[in-house]
Design a protein around this nucleic acid. Structure first.
Lengths: 209, 209
DNA sequence: CACGAATTGGACTGTTCAGTCCATTTTTGG
DNA sequence: CCAAAAATGGACTGAACAGTCCAATTCGTG
């Protein structure tokens, strides 16, 4: 047995494992965790039952991996924007990216993390904890971006970056949910405008700095 | 056959029908629509299979009734507060009611409408439409309350009550989702504070009126 | 190359579930 | 009180599904 990293799987095995998670993530996004059948995953990932149970101890374990993958994807998609947050305009353009992304991919399925959180938080403590970590990771990079703005004197010292970032995630989630339900991007736009205004109160006017 | 109202069922039949909807609503709230089995509904409502199919053409039709029931309950719970909205403080105390209600009943299950919307909007066009109506009914009574405040010169004429009410529902939904996932009421509180501040900008100061 | 480990194929099982069907009981209106 | 309609009981069916199991194949390494 060759040890590649610490996974205990060979390169081929690891590739299969990833293919399964990828396929499962898509199906979960489209049909929910309860709606995903292992047969569908087998078809979509070109694997067999024994492979599924070779790499994951049961369906719940696979769902848990899907949660991790979706968290990583969201953080990866947002970090580039948040890492160079240096003005209120930059914040606004990040919001526009979210609106655009929702229009393009999420108009029907919504936020992959939000949908899973809604479905699983009350059903599985393990899933709930994983999803809470996911939201926290997301909120955290937003908070860091805001903190950076504060350090650059773009935001007032009184701005509570922890609370502001949390409110932002809430606005995103609520907006996406209403947009998905009404099939209209307006609720998300309205919610993000609220979140932006909320932060705008703490923006330091150019003259002041 | 006696015609009671327009339902086509006798009083006993109508009572059975309601008992089924009530039981289904509780189970759906606890386990989701996909997680609800008809056998559970039968047990909880003390009915048989044939009764379920006598009153509802299939499971989807029953779920649709559950959506209607939950909408009505939310509107009924909020209307008393929103009908006498006459100050920013009244708005604030309505928010406190929401936080309290969430702590008491919804800490685990979240918002019955929000959870269903998240689960079903992408799966069933009929359910999505029903849920969109539900959110719209809720938003609408909030908008009416804000409009009343505007008529009483408590809010500036420039306040867009339609957009403000929509943002409020988004904040509620996002806050409830994060609170349910993190098992902490703080996200909901933070989100509602944001929504309140957002409206506070349009409050007419006592001196001005 | 050979041997053990990793990987894969796929049949099989037991359960759960939505939906069907027919028989029985209860109620209603004349 | 009696026929017709409404309401109910509950067995049954077929499909979907998670999970098990054993055999076959491929791969890595000495």
């Amino acid at each position: 047995m060759r040890k590649d990293g610490k996974s205990g799987f060979t390169a081929r095995g690891e590739a299969t494992r990833l293919r399964i998670i990828e396929a499962a993530a898509e199906i979960v996004y489209a049909e929910g965790a309860a709606g995903m059948s292992l047969d569908e995953v087998m078809d979509a990932s070109r694997t067999s039952k024994s492979q599924l149970y070779h790499y994951f101890c049961d369906k719940d374990a696979l769902i848990q991996e899907v949660i991790g993958r979706q968290t990583r994807r969201i953080v990866e998609a947002n970090a580039p924007h948040l890492d160079k947050l240096d003005s209120f305009d930059a914040l606004r353009s990040w919001c526009n990216m979210i609106i655009e992304a929702n229009r393009t991919f999420g108009a029907i399925g919504g936020c992959p993390l939000g949908s899973l959180a809604s479905e699983l938080s009350a059903q599985s403590e393990q899933a709930r904890a994983g999803l809470a970590n996911g939201f926290e990771a997301w909120r955290s990079i937003i908070a860091e971006g805001l903190a950076r703005m504060k350090n650059q004197d773009k935001l007032m010292p009184s701005a509570d970056t922890q609370a502001l970032s949390m409110a932002f995630v809430a606005a995103i989630q609520g907006g996406i949910l209403l947009s998905k339900t009404s099939r209209n991007s307006q609720p998300l736009e309205v919610a993000l405008n609220m979140a932006l205004s909320h932060i705008e109160r703490y923006v330091v006017a150019p003259a002041e700095r």
